Computed example of a mutant assay.
Amino acid sequence: MAKTAQQPVLVIMGVSGSGKSTVAGVLAGRLGWELAEGDDLHPESNVAKMQSGQPLTDDDRWPWLERVADWIREHTASGTPGIITCSALKKRYRDVLRGEGVVFVFLQGSKEHISGRLASRHGHFMPPALLESQFEALEEPTEDENFISLSVAASPSEEAQEVIERLSLEPKSTGATTAGANRVPGH
């Protein structure tokens, strides 16, 4: 699977702590593609709810998913490659995001491994206590979805390289870019 006729928009997905932002930043730097952090598109009410330790409901997520989908559609309509992070935990969420030229990159890991990562992460609004709800909500991508899966046991650099190789992407040939240099904040 995971083939597209045009330069793709990659949706880096997985539970909180799976490394979406880090892998996306490495990919954006290597490819020279625009990067958007899906979390930046959350309404303030969603951020406040998560900061207080409350999981989001589907009603909370729909406006956010529409913002993410708008970003994706802007890129696919113009044929512009891009990378966006989004947990996209349920199939119905991915159904809102998917389309021609969209490839989901599913970062998979055990609850224990990801929990260890979250315990050492600071400054993010998603508290480690909500990881259980993320795993409960997770519906892994299925054959009818355009995706590749990666184990989070590798380093972010190795994971990014695997994405480039598996999707036959062309790294940018001029000078190195720092990870996330092409990042565009939510709009």
Rank of each mutant, 00 (worst) to 15 (best):
residue 25 G to A: 03
residue 39 D to V: 04
residue 75 H to G: 04
residue 7 Q to N: 13
residue 10 L to A: 08
residue 107 L to N: 11
residue 143 E to V: 14
residue 32 G to H: 00
residue 147 F to P: 11
residue 13 M to G: 07
residue 159 E to F: 11
residue 49 K to W: 03
residue 101 G to H: 04
residue 123 G to W: 05
residue 8 P to G: 06
residue 88 A to D: 03
residue 14 G to W: 03
residue 151 S to N: 06
residue 88 A to E: 02
residue 22 T to S: 13
residue 3 K to N: 11
residue 19 G to V: 07
residue 53 G to S: 05
residue 15 V to R: 08
residue 27 L to I: 02
residue 129 A to Q: 12
residue 3 K to M: 12
residue 52 S to Q: 13
residue 121 R to L: 02
residue 84 I to Q: 00
residue 75 H to C: 07
residue 88 A to F: 02
residue 57 T to G: 10
residue 10 L to W: 00
residue 120 S to C: 09
residue 13 M to V: 15
residue 124 H to Y: 07
residue 98 R to T: 11
residue 21 S to G: 05
residue 33 W to M: 01
residue 55 P to K: 06
residue 64 W to K: 01
residue 112 E to Y: 09
residue 117 R to F: 03
residue 10 L to S: 03
residue 22 T to W: 04
residue 57 T to R: 09
residue 38 G to N: 08
residue 113 H to E: 15
residue 103 V to E: 08
residue 83 I to A: 00
residue 174 T to H: 07
residue 157 S to T: 11
residue 136 E to I: 05
residue 176 A to H: 13
residue 56 L to W: 10
residue 152 V to F: 07
residue 186 G to R: 07
residue 78 S to N: 12
residue 179 A to H: 02
residue 84 I to W: 00
residue 151 S to C: 07
residue 123 G to C: 06
residue 14 G to S: 05
residue 139 E to P: 01
residue 55 P to A: 05
residue 75 H to I: 01
residue 65 L to D: 04
residue 10 L to H: 02
residue 127 P to I: 02
residue 147 F to H: 14
residue 98 R to S: 10
residue 82 G to F: 02
residue 73 R to F: 08
residue 73 R to Y: 08
residue 88 A to Y: 01
residue 185 P to T: 08
residue 136 E to P: 01
residue 41 L to I: 07
residue 154 A to L: 12
residue 1 M to Q: 12
residue 7 Q to L: 15
residue 162 E to T: 12
residue 96 V to I: 08
residue 76 T to A: 13
residue 71 W to T: 09
residue 68 V to H: 02
residue 92 R to M: 14
residue 75 H to W: 01
residue 87 S to Y: 03
residue 18 S to C: 14
residue 20 K to L: 00
residue 91 K to R: 15
residue 169 L to H: 01
residue 171 P to V: 04
residue 182 N to Y: 05
residue 55 P to I: 04
residue 58 D to Y: 01
residue 27 L to T: 00
residue 135 F to K: 07
residue 163 V to K: 07
residue 46 N to K: 09
residue 161 Q to W: 10
residue 147 F to I: 07
residue 140 E to A: 14
residue 107 L to C: 06
residue 53 G to I: 06
residue 145 E to I: 15
residue 73 R to G: 06
residue 125 F to D: 01
residue 151 S to D: 07
residue 125 F to R: 02
residue 75 H to L: 06
residue 67 R to Y: 04
residue 36 A to G: 13
residue 119 A to E: 15
residue 137 A to G: 14
residue 149 S to D: 15
residue 157 S to H: 12
